Simulated scan of single mutants.
Amino acid sequence: MDAERIMERVRRLLAIANDPAASDNEQRIALEQAQRLMDRHAIEEWQLEEDHDAIEIIRRMIHLEANPCNWYMAELANIVALGNRCRASYGWRRAGNGRNVVCSISIYGARSDVDKTEAIWTAMETSRAAMWRERARTTPRAKANAAWRNGYYRGFQEEIARRYAILRREMESDGAGRELVTVRGSQVDQ
């Protein structure tokens, strides 16, 4: 059987499994058969979606208050976006002192991926800020030392990037994961 015929059979079986008019026994058998076909042919749930090739790519902009740490926030947003099949960019303006300041971050991707990216990035930023404040409070003259703060932020980012790289390698180790990363990545890049 060719791949599209197998996927259509799995879709029909799943429709029976979710049909309230079908008996419990019919639903159970249909679900078991669908799962066996999916396992045998390495079919992932996302591949069964009729419109997985026609995903709407959105842009979400996050505005930032002027802060010298915004460069680190933008870099972390890029790391998290790439780890969640999205892309990130930043907007900047020239501050009164002549320096460039990041004033916004844009995240591009499928709506569900953008929602996840924004939630993870926000949680990481909140965690990073809380941890840095605690470390600065317990370290003499740390708050006044921008190099110490920047080193802390850089170390945090490097650890997050390392962890995402491990996850990406694990996901790409099987064919279906590699296909999902490739398909979604090319959609967002376009």
Rank of each mutant, 00 (worst) to 15 (best):
I107Q: 11
R162C: 01
M38D: 08
S106R: 13
N150V: 00
E75P: 01
N70R: 12
N84H: 14
V10Q: 05
A95D: 07
V102R: 09
V114Y: 03
F156W: 10
E118H: 09
Q33W: 00
N18R: 14
A88C: 07
M124V: 03
R128G: 06
Q190T: 09
Q187W: 05
W92K: 12
I16Y: 05
R28F: 11
R141I: 03
A165T: 06
C69M: 14
T117A: 12
P140M: 02
D24K: 12
H63K: 14
K116M: 10
T139S: 13
G109R: 12
L167S: 09
E159T: 13
A34Q: 03
N18T: 00
R9F: 01
H52T: 05
L180K: 15
L64M: 05
G91Q: 10
P140C: 01
D53K: 11
L13H: 02
S89P: 00
D174K: 03
R133W: 05
R149S: 14
Y164E: 07
A129S: 13
Q35F: 02
I16L: 12
S104Q: 10
A129W: 08
R85P: 00
R87V: 02
E8N: 15
N78Y: 07
G109H: 10
A30S: 04
G185Y: 05
I120C: 07
M38L: 10
E134I: 03
A161F: 00
A147I: 10
G98K: 08
R59N: 09
E4C: 00
E118N: 07
T138W: 07
R162L: 02
A119W: 03
L167C: 03
S173V: 00
A142G: 09
Q35T: 15
M73T: 15
G155P: 01
L82P: 02
A21Y: 05
S104V: 04
R12V: 03
A21N: 11
W46I: 12
A42P: 02
D53S: 07
V188M: 09
Q187N: 04
T138D: 10
G155W: 00
G177R: 07
D189M: 13
H41S: 09
W121C: 15
S23A: 09
I62P: 00
N67D: 15
Q35W: 02
T139D: 09
T182A: 13
P68S: 11
Y153E: 11
A146P: 04
Q27C: 06
A42K: 14
M61Q: 12
R133D: 08
R94W: 00
P140Q: 04
A22R: 14
T122M: 10
D53C: 06
G177C: 08
Q33E: 13
A136H: 09
I62K: 07
S173D: 08
C103L: 05
E26A: 13
V114M: 06
L37R: 06
N145F: 04
A95R: 11
Y72E: 12
A123T: 12
V114C: 09
D39T: 15
L82R: 14
E159Y: 04
V181F: 05
